[in-house]
Design a protein around this nucleic acid. Structure first.
Length: 576
RNA sequence: GCGCCUGUAGCUCAGCGGAUAGAGCGGCUGCCUUCUAAGCAGUUGGUCGCAGGUUCGAGUCCUGCCAGGCGCGCCA
């Protein structure tokens, strides 16, 4: 059973066509979760006018067919024409047992696998990774995991900022302090110190600023020694990202680096081809594309600048080159940009120009999975002032140490304690970013972000720890529990029914690139389990049959929560 | 000025055009001799920014207004 709701929709559709004719096959049966039953079908009210019948009559005629489907226990008409559908307990139990035996746990395999490029994380070389990067990194990584699980081919693209005019000052600063000192600073995460060191000199010392400008020219001209130093800078910074990725459990590797500089050799052609196609024109000395529908402050058409009047290229050019490369060379069917919402207009323009140029055919989806802005407690954009910047690594360490505090008197083994604290701290941090709709802006609030109670990462981890505890106490191997599953209590039924929604939650979450949907599902699931845990003794169940059924239900819950947390990229400790 | 986003409980946020708008936190009351209390049960708390419109039905769609945020030619 890939998707419970879809299966039900098929039944209602069949009833609809049987009763009213094939022309209604395309009508959406409008299946929704219901407070009055397991599901409700709202199609009767939608079709009443078209059928020229009272909505309740339509509902009654559809409902009369539904009782015959094995999955449906009851279909009752209520209110103006709602069809309240109650599933059969036996069917739910069988479906849950089937899910338990399914290695995919009900996650469907896409019937149309795509090549998906996911552009995410994208820190800048020699610049601190701030909290905004954390969010694009975490959300992007989860999207990637979900898409892969659904059978898509995913190409991770870490579009790091390794090029631009400020590399002149960074390189001169590197030369000034020496490569060893720079390495020590950058790899250790003292990145702001390094950057500020360069910036201060650039602003205060004209001679340094002059050297910096010459260094940019040398870099662009491909001067060997300059390139060597530039690579050093990148390698040093990479140490820092990779250390953070490792701590966070992010799947990005060096193989996923798609740096801006990679596109440098393509930029000239991008400009030439767009100009030849008549899409780009010279305006005020710069080569610009003016996609229709975009106007600026003064009411004039808004340009996407492709070549600056000084001959240099900007990030718009790089994005054009990237989109062309991803479609043309990588064969992407879908490109997802997990990038801050501030850039919405920029991406809209890039997509528009790429469509005009034919580089982005209609068959390819390009979407900006916008990430909301991070604000301080004053609700203004969060800015790291020099001196008191919030380092990502500091946030991570804070998360882990808070978790450590909670378990300090619970376990003696320091190694076990460190393991648990790491998983719990990281889990709290990541879940905080993953459980909120990605586009909504959020306040940087440590207490909330690192919360270990309520709707939090640790709540989900805790559910798995309690399940494992049952199996440990009873010396039972969860892998050996296969059911049958029978539903004897409301908490069992609610849990089983919830479990059946897993596949749909994953599919929907990946489709919209919104991990918070999966996070919400898992929280509901964990809540249902906790109720079950409180109300239904497993090891001391009243009969061997019920014990076995509940063990199977617990095993399935464990599998699903583990799989779900893995898709979110949240680590799980064995015990807490 | 134009464009995009946001406005839901004291706070932070969910909410696929469907019935009585939900969760977490906070407040209050209970619950550890019982598979982990990072928990559970209950309770408190809302003119869904405002006004129109579409619809059998609007927190959800459309229009206008109000408030806030972001973006708007050579930074990325």
């Amino acid at each position: 059973m890939a998707d419970l709701q879809a299966a039900l929709a098929a039944h209602v559709s069949a009833a609809l066509t049987a009763e009213f004719g094939a022309e209604y096959a395309g009508a959406d049966p409008l299946i929704r979760p219901s407070a009055f039953a397991d599901f409700q079908a709202n199609v009767a009210m939608a079709l009443a006018k078209r059928l020229g019948l009272p909505p309740r009559d339509v509902a009654t005629r559809i409902a009369s067919h539904l009782d015959q489907a094995p999955m449906c226990e009851r279909a009752e008409v209520s209110g103006p024409g709602f069809i309240n559908i109650t599933l059969s307990d036996a069917w739910i139990g069988e479906a849950a047992a089937f899910q338990l035996g399914d290695p995919r746990l009900g996650i469907p395999v896409s019937d149309r696998p795509q090549r998906v490029v996911v552009d995410y994380s994208s820190p800048n070389v020699a610049k601190e990774m701030h909290v905004g990067h954390l969010r694009t990194t975490i959300v992007g990584d989860s999207v990637v995991r979900m898409l892969e699980r659904l059978g898509h081919t995913v190409i991770r693209a870490n579009h790091i900022g390794d090029w631009g005019t400020n590399f002149g000052m960074l390189l001169e600063h590197l030369i000034d302090i020496g490569e060893q000192a720079a390495y020590a600073q950058l790899a250790a995460g003292e990145i702001n110190d390094f950057y500020q060191g360069a910036k201060v000199k650039f602003d205060a010392d004209p001679a340094f600023a002059d050297r910096s400008r010459r260094r940019v020219v040398a870099l662009q001209a491909g001067d060997q020694e300059t390139l060597r130093l530039w690579r050093t800078l990148i390698d040093d910074s990479k140490q820092y990202y990779n250390a953070i990725y490792a701590k966070l459990g992010v799947t990005l590797t060096d193989a996923d680096l798609a740096p801006e500089s990679f596109y440098n050799p393509l930029l000239e052609d991008v400009c030439r081809d767009l100009e030849r196609a008549g899409i780009a024109v010279i305006s005020d000395g710069a080569l610009c594309a003016f996609p229709p529908g975009f106007t600026g402050r003064d009411g004039n058409p808004l340009p996407l600048i492709l070549r600056k009047s000084d001959g240099g290229y900007g990030y718009g050019t790089t994005d054009m080159a990237a989109i062309r490369y991803r479609v043309g060379d990588l064969g992407a069917d879908r490109i997802i940009y997990v990038v801050g919402s501030e850039q919405a207009q920029h991406f809209a323009m890039v997509f528009a120009v790429a469509r005009q140029a034919g580089w982005l055919p209609d068959s390819v989806i390009a979407e900006h999975a916008a990430i909301g802005m991070v604000t301080g407690t004053d609700r203004k954009r969060f800015r790291s002032r020099s001196g008191e910047s919030v380092k990502l690594i500091g946030l991570i360490d804070e998360a882990v140490s808070r978790a450590e505090k909670v378990i300090e008197d619970r376990y003696d083994d320091p190694e076990l304690r460190a393991q648990i604290a790491h998983a719990v701290g990281i889990g709290a941090l990541k879940y905080a970013d993953l459980s909120v709709a990605r586009e909504s802006s959020y306040m940087l609030d440590f207490d909330r972000m690192l919360s270990l109670t309520g709707n939090s990462g640790p709540y989900l981890q805790y559910a798995t720890a309690r399940i494992r505890s049952i199996f440990r106490k009873g010396s039972v191997d969860p892998a050996g529990e296969t059911g049958p599953i029978m539903l004897t209590a409301p908490a069992e039924r609610a849990l089983a029914l919830r479990l059946l929604g897993f596949g749909a939650a994953v599919a929907e979450s990946a489709q919209t690139a919104e991990p918070h949907r999966l996070a919400a599902f898992l929280f509901d699931l964990a809540s249902d389990f906790t109720t079950f845990f409180e109300q239904c003794p497993v090891l001391k169940a009243e009969s061997p049959q019920i014990r076995s059924s509940r063990l199977a239900l617990a095993a399935l819950t464990l599998d699903v929560v583990l799989a779900g947390l893995d898709l979110l990229g949240i680590p799980v400790p064995d015990r807490m």
